[in-house]
């Protein structure tokens, strides 16, 4: 592990229990993890091992049942709703397996969405979003809607959206899971480049080819880390 890099996220003994009626499902059973600037982490594990649950908690989309999670030394459980929303907005970008774009918005408006909630003016929003779309190779798709684009293009729009507000960590939950292998490797190249530019990426996958891009692999089994 490279020393001297700043710690962004620190998760201590994180548990997450879901309730299905009266049956408790222990998705996480005590995970401890640190993410530092410019990390490129891959979280691997079988389906149902708790990978998604873990990065949802890391990205403040969900809260742990037990355990402590610090964002730059601040305890997340003390955050108000507005602070959590702020963290999702400015600290993190998230790329979902299913793209999760708003179907009625154009590519540029989808990318600009985090900036809307960051209170950026429309002109700046458009300028920044257009720039990043160009960089990611979608300069000619700016005014297309999701149903007018291929899966790979949609995922690139989603990556642009995750990057637009210059977050400290970009999370991706099986970003290539819905794509054919060629498109998938194109997407992986984008992630590699993002990390080269100094960004921090945490990616969930169950594909070891995909995971091999990362500098660090965390493998999960039944809600516990069984290898790094």
């Amino acid at each position: 592990m490279t020393k001297g890099r700043e710690t962004i996220c620190r998760a201590l003994d994180i548990h997450k229990t879901y309730w299905r009626g009266k049956v408790a499902v222990q998705a996480l059973r005590g995970v401890t993890l640190e993410i530092r600037t410019n990390d490129y982490v891959s979280i691997m594990g079988a389906s149902g091992s708790g990978k998604s649950t873990l990065i949802h908690i890391l990205s403040c989309l969900d809260t742990p049942t037990k355990g402590e999670y610090f964002l730059e030394d601040k305890l997340v459980s003390s955050y108000t709703d507005a602070e959590l929303a702020g963290a999702r907005n400015m600290f993190f970008g998230f790329v979902f397996q299913s793209f999760s774009l708003l179907p009625r918005l154009t590519a540029i408006d989808n990318v600009a969405l985090p900036l809307v909630y960051a209170g950026v003016k429309k002109r700046d929003r458009n300028q920044r979003s257009a720039e990043i779309l160009k960089k990611i190779g979608l300069g000619d798709r700016i005014n297309h809607r999701p149903n007018e684009m291929s899966g790979g293009e949609c995922q690139r729009v989603a990556i642009a959206r995750a990057l637009v507000n210059t977050p400290k960590v970009i999370f991706a939950d099986e970003p290539t899971g819905n794509l054919d292998s060629k498109t998938g490797s194109e997407i992986m190249e984008i992630f590699d480049r993002i990390v080269e530019e100094g960004n921090t990426v945490v990616m969930v996958t169950h594909d070891s080819n995909v995971a091999s891009h990362a500098k660090k692999i965390v493998s999960l089994k039944d809600g516990l880390i069984d290898g790094e």
């Binding site: 989309l61 507005a82 959590l84 929303a85 999702r88 969405l113 909630y117 960051a118 507000n165």
Partner: peptide
């Protein structure tokens, strides 16, 4: 519902 989820994921607060 999905739209709400997406908006929240990119930073919309309950208030928004």
């Amino acid at each position: 519902t999905r739209e709400i989820g997406i908006r929240k994921a990119v930073g919309a607060s309950n208030q928004n």
